[in-house]
Simulated assay, not measured.
Amino acid sequence: MWAFCLSAFAQEEAAGRTVFLAGSGNGALDQHLTGLLQSQMGEGVNLRPITDDQIPMIGEEPVITIGPSAFSRIRQANRNVPILAMLVDRSFLDAFADRSPGRVSGILYDVPLIRQALTGKAILPHATRIALLATADSVELYEPLIDKLPAYGMSARIFLVESSDKLIPTLVRALGYGDFLLAAPDSAIYNPRTIKHILLTAYRRNRIVIGPTQAYVKAGSLASSYAPFPEMVQLASQFLDTYFETGEFPPPSYPEQFRVEINRQVARSLNIPLPSREDIAARVDRQLTVNGEAADE
C-alpha cells in the first residue's frame, strides 16, 4: 500500500506541483478557501485534501492548514512537514515559525493592533487615549502597540482583569480613561459569553469598541479592520512559489491590503458620523505609510 501511494504521489509530481490541504472542519469555509486557492495557483498545482494516514508519508510537499486545529493536527503527526498556515494569529504561530524557520510559515489572520488603533482614530480624529483590557497571560500582546502609539499622537493604558467577576468593574475604570476601547484577539476577555456585557457597558458610557475581529462588528463593535480572503490567498500563493523555488517559506506575514467593517447602527445610536469604509481604510494606510509601519505590520 505504501509503495502504491508513493507511486501515486510521484505521478502527480510529474504532472505538476502537489500541495496538500488540511481543512478546518467547517465545510463551507474549507470549500470557499479551496476554490480561491485553486483559482489563484492555477492548473499547474495539484491541491489535494490530506487524510490522517497520509500525514506521516509527506516529505517535501507543502501542506496548507486552515485554522489552528488543522495546524496542530499536522504538526503533531509529522514535525518535518513544511506547513503554510492560514487563519491563525501571530501569537499562535510565531513560536513554531521560530523553531522551524523556512519550514513553518503562515498568512497571519489577526489584525496588527496599530492598524486597529488607527482605525479608531480615523473614526474619532481627536482621540488621544486608548483603553486596553488584558489578563496576566495576555498583557504582552499590547506592549509593541504601546511603544508605537506616541508616533501617532496617542497613548494607551492597560487595565488588568484579575478574575472574571472583576471584568465589568475593570472595564468601567478603563472606559473612564480611554477615548475608546481597543479589543485584541484575547479569548479570555472577548468571547461570546462576555461580549454583550462589554458592549452594553461601553455604549452606556458613550464609548466605542474597536475590534477584535470582523465578526464582532456584527455583534456590536463599532468597527474593525480585516484582511479579505482574496488578499490572504494571493499572499499564500506567493509563499508557495517561493517555497517551490527555494525550498523555504518566507517568514509569517500579514497581507498588504486590509479593509474595514463598520456598524452604522451603533454609530447612529452614539451620534457618531462615520466616514465610508474605504475612506477609513485609506486614512489608516496613509498614516502607516507616513510612519514607515506598513511593511512592518
Rank of each mutant, 00 (worst) to 15 (best):
C5D: 15
L6A: 14
A8W: 04
F9M: 14
T18N: 13
F20T: 03
N26D: 12
L33E: 06
L37W: 06
L47S: 10
R48P: 00
T51R: 14
D52E: 09
Q54K: 09
P56G: 09
V63K: 06
Q76E: 15
A77L: 13
N80R: 15
P82L: 15
I83M: 14
M86W: 05
R103H: 02
I107K: 03
L108Y: 04
D110T: 11
D110R: 03
P112G: 07
R115P: 07
L118D: 03
L118P: 05
G120L: 00
A122E: 01
P125M: 01
H126F: 09
T128S: 14
R129W: 00
R129D: 09
V139Q: 10
L145T: 05
D147G: 07
P150W: 02
M154G: 12
S155F: 06
A156C: 07
I158K: 13
F159H: 10
S163Y: 02
G178M: 09
A184Q: 06
R193E: 08
I195N: 08
K196H: 06
I198Y: 04
L199R: 08
L199W: 06
L200A: 15
T201E: 05
V209N: 04
T213F: 00
G220K: 06
L222I: 09
S224H: 03
S225L: 02
A227H: 14
P228Q: 08
S237D: 12
D241W: 03
Y243W: 10
F244I: 07
E245N: 11
S253V: 02
E256K: 09
R259Y: 04
L274F: 01
I280T: 12
A281Q: 12
A282F: 06
V284F: 12
Q287K: 12
L288V: 13
